[in-house]
Design a binder for these strands. Sequence first.
DNA 1: CCTTCTCTCAACCACTTGGTTGATAAACCG
DNA 2: CGGTTTATCAACCAAGTGGTTGAGAGAAGG
Lengths: 114, 114
Amino acid sequence: MTADPVSLVFAALADPTRRAILARLASGEATVNELAAPFPVSVQAISKHLNVLERAGLIVRTREAQWRRCRLDPAPLRTLSEWVDQYRRLWDDRYDTLDDYLRDLKERSDGTAQ
Amino acid sequence: MTADPVSLVFAALADPTRRAILARLASGEATVNELAAPFPVSVQAISKHLNVLERAGLIVRTREAQWRRCRLDPAPLRTLSEWVDQYRRLWDDRYDTLDDYLRDLKERSDGTAQ
DNA sequence: CCTTCTCTCAACCACTTGGTTGATAAACCG
DNA sequence: CGGTTTATCAACCAAGTGGTTGAGAGAAGG
């Protein structure tokens, strides 16, 4: 799956089950069983989905006793937001002039290595 | 690949070649051969990538004579940006209070069916 | 100790993906 | 008309994906 980080994040999000898991985790930590409960698939399938999310850096898993708690890590989403916003001038009406666009680009690039 | 539109867009972006094609198209229309030139793969492979981008709604293709010009359609990127921003409160420091967050949620939801 | 609960590992399966090569269609050009 | 350019279609292949079932490891608890 072309191991570059951005591709990993996009690929991880290209599945409704995984996006639903993230939505659930946005409101707090959860165990694997808790995450699997709403879905009509096996716990093993959910475990695989969690592997994908973990490889993409979107969640972190901590073990306590026999439970593995999952927590959402929004850092990759921030990176993604910045990637998408590269194209913002193509649709957004907030850029009235090229100057506005260039000024904003400069602001965004301050300490933000692509 | 689970035909829902959001998944289609994420999946289309989960490939560095396709993202490079979009970056090229951000600076203007291009034909298939022009798009294929920088890549070490066949023109047919690029044609397949363009099919994926078209199904995701990220490009539109118009035919003139023997050329098919490709143009970027940023609308799905806007949708994506809104999707990602659902999680913005989890990382961004611009939300100082819950009130700020809720007020912003209300603004975003005006005419923005999820 | 034995059972139960939680979770992962391993093997397997159908399907998709990203690439190839070869053939074909369509339009221009001499 | 004959050849060249542009792009797609079709068949194929290796590798990956999302699901299954079955087995097993670790910790809690009667």
